[in-house]
């Protein structure tokens, strides 16, 4: 039995460190990451940035244009500082954009992995129930649930969570079914491992990545849907600063100060496109198999 000489290979790294290294080499992803990090940090530390009070308006300083001294990004229809409102607005907008996707990631993965791993009747029960939600367009579904639950931040989080569970569960089910049928799962069963151990060591390890990538691609949709709900008056209530709601209230000013009216929309656009590009970068960085 001769040991086989292996040509000098680079020192071996764990999978996730390889993914991290590839992510850092991707300029677009890194740029998007920096933009998002700046927006998120600004939102979190808004009170310490020396901004104006986002709630205090002034009748005489309404709809000042961008670049007005003292009002870098102008003022809104009630004379409130746009910069402050955009930064503070990020808090709610990001919260109701990210939280539903996170919730749906947890619930959808749980449902999908269970359905995919157990298979048979349980799979049919879970997946057919989920199919029911597919009968409605996601926008309509979100509006309908929010409408039924009533306006409010928490209710819009709940309704968006319900909207995103089915697609995530679907993706989770299909990747789990693929992985479950690979021989290494059979080998694990043959070595006497129980289902919980197999899911923990062999399934989750291989399915969480793809599900996570898919979930990050939903963040942009969630941001836009959340803004849409607020725009329709089903999410945040005035005078809370929130990008979707701001878009609504500034709509009347579109002929007077179109640039100001477009600012909240620009923020939604930047954030959602950054999340989308990062999701793409993550997807290709994770494709290091073979």
């Amino acid at each position: 039995m001769t040991a086989i000489a292996l040509p000098a290979l680079p020192p071996t790294r764990g999978y996730w460190s390889a993914v991290g290294r590839r992510l850092l080499q991707d300029k677009v992803t890194v740029a998007c990451g920096i933009v998002l990090l700046a927006i998120i940090l600004a939102a979190i530390f808004a009170p310490y940035l020396g901004l104006a009070d986002p709630y205090r308006g002034s009748i005489i300083r309404r709809l000042r244009p961008i670049g007005t001294p003292g009002y870098l990004l102008g003022t809104d229809e009630q004379g409130r500082d746009m910069l402050a409102r955009l930064v503070y607005g990020g808090r709610l907008s990001l919260f109701i954009g990210l939280l539903p996707v996170f919730n749906a990631f947890v619930i959808g993965t749980l449902l999908g992995v269970t359905a995919g791993f157990v298979g048979g009747r349980l799979n049919a029960a879970i997946m057919r129930t989920i199919d029911v939600f597919y009968a409605f367009p996601s926008v309509l579904l979100a509006i309908a649930i929010s409408g039924a639950l009533g306006a409010g931040v928490l209710n819009s989080v709940v309704s968006l969570t319900i909207v995103f569970v089915p697609p995530i569960a679907r993706v989770a089910e299909s990747v789990t079914t693929q992985v479950r049928n690979l021989d290494f799962v059979d080998a694990a069963r043959a070595s006497g491992a129980g289902p919980i151990t197999i899911i923990r060591v062999h399934i989750l390890n291989n399915v969480l990545g793809p599900i996570f990538v898919y979930a990050t691609s939903l963040i942009s949709v969630s941001m836009i849907l959340a803004a849409g709900l607020s725009f329709l008056g089903l999410g945040t209530k005035p005078p809370e600063p929130e990008w979707g709601l701001m878009l609504n209230t500034l709509r009347t000013a579109i002929y007077v100060q179109p640039w100001i009216a477009a600012l909240p929309g620009t923020m939604i656009f930047i954030v959602s496109i950054c999340f989308n590009l990062m999701s793409d970068g993550l997807r290709s960085a994770m494709d290091v198999r073979r």
């Binding site: 021989d183 290494f184 080998a187």
Partner: peptide
């Protein structure tokens, strides 16, 4: 098994794959 690649978990090191049975 026949398929040497499909029968090893791609996320586990070789030693973890071999030690898995005894650990269980």
């Amino acid at each position: 098994f026949q398929d040497s690649f499909a029968s090893l978990n791609p996320r586990l090191t070789i030693e973890d794959s071999i030690a898995f049975g005894p650990r269980v």
